[in-house]
Design a binder for these strands. Structure first.
Length: 180
DNA sequence: CCGGCAAACGAAA
DNA sequence: TTTCGTTTGCCGG
């Protein structure tokens, strides 16, 4: 479904086979968000299949997701997410990586290197990046709190979405210089 | 089935 | 500025 968040813009939220995807480009129009939603339902952004989860988007979950997002993005309150997340079939390295990431407290950040170190594999920095790239639950698993040692790192691949990472960090009171 | 390569990185040459 | 290291998925043979 599509919601409008003040000072943020239209936001398409979809609970798909791959988990969650929420498109929160600030400049998205309602029409654009609807279009994106349609796309997401048809072909989820995360296009690797993990587990045999059914393909139908779950509207009930979507509602819960929307409420959560409104609390977080609009009111700045980050609640525990009330639904269980499905990790079946997800590669174990990715899973353990994302678990580490999920333990980063609100308002704090880590680097890809630090995560790799915590995994007992300090050189696997790039692999950590790979795991975050596959994060089926962006926003819920706070991968925006993982930065590169110099600069911001990436966020879901697409160009403009790095802007979302920046905004999420600002929302949590983390000062990201304009240069990085 | 295998080899090579790319990807949200980072250190060292 | 190039190379290498880690893990995974993808594509070509």
């Amino acid at each position: 479904m599509v919601i409008f968040i003040k000072d943020w813009g239209f936001c398409a939220c979809c609970w798909s086979t791959k988990g969650l995807w929420a498109l929160t480009l600030p400049e998205a129009t309602e029409k654009g968000a609807l279009q994106a939603l349609k796309q997401m339902r048809k072909a989820p952004v995360h296009n690797d299949t993990y587990g045999g989860i059914e393909k139908i988007a779950n509207l009930e979950k979507e509602k819960i997701l929307v409420q959560w997002l409104e609390q977080y993005l609009y009111k700045g309150k980050r609640m525990d997410f009330p639904l269980e997340l499905d990790w079946s079939g997800f590669p174990s390295f990715y899973y353990t990586t994302l678990m580490k990431v999920s333990k980063i407290e609100e308002g704090k950040t880590k680097t890809y290197g630090e995560i790799a170190e915590q995994l007992g594999n300090p050189k696997a920095v790039r692999a950590v990046g790979g795991a975050l790239r596959k994060n089926p639950y962006p926003l819920l698993i706070p991968c925006h709190r993982v930065l590169a040692c110099q600069g911001l790192g990436g966020f879901t691949g697409a160009d403009k979405r790095i802007e979302l990472k920046r905004r999420l960090l600002e929302l949590e009171g983390i000062n990201v210089g304009s240069s990085i």
